[in-house]
Design a protein around this nucleic acid. Structure first.
Length: 109
DNA sequence: TAGTTGACGGCCG
DNA sequence: CCGGCCGCCAACT
């Protein structure tokens, strides 16, 4: 078990704690894991999350602006938005509407 | 083996 | 206001 594997697993566990209908950011996750500045690694971990078990709700993670930058990496580009809408999150121009209200922080859980 | 590429984000000129 | 740079570092070519 390398250091990075442990980091990935921590990312997955944290993302699984995001409540339905809420979203969080790469930066918040990195900071919560004491890796502030490594937001990019969080994104990389999530890019590989489709093959892990139990499943990771990676669609609930957006960038700091609330933009769905990850959508191109899902099975289909519209899947991410569809999943979020199903949870009651409104998307406007590839961005989470009322982002600050929907935003969830690890400290809330 | 070395170079490039990201599902990012803070900082600088 | 805004484009560009840099830290992060595993995966891929």
């Amino acid at each position: 078990m390398s250091r990075s594997d442990a980091f990935y697993e921590q990312v997955y566990q944290l993302v699984r704690k995001i409540p339905e209908g809420r979203v969080t950011t790469y930066g918040d996750i990195a900071k919560a894991l004491c890796k502030e500045g490594a937001a990019r690694q969080v994104g990389y971990a999530l890019a590989r999350s489709s093959s892990v078990s139990p499943p990771v709700p990676a669609h609930r993670v957006v960038n700091r602006m609330g933009v769905l930058t990850a959508k191109e990496s899902f099975q289909t580009p519209w899947l991410m938005q569809e999943l979020l809408v199903n949870e009651g999150i409104m998307i406007e121009d590839e961005r989470v509407k009322d982002f600050e209200l929907k935003r969830w922080r690890p400290s809330d859980g």
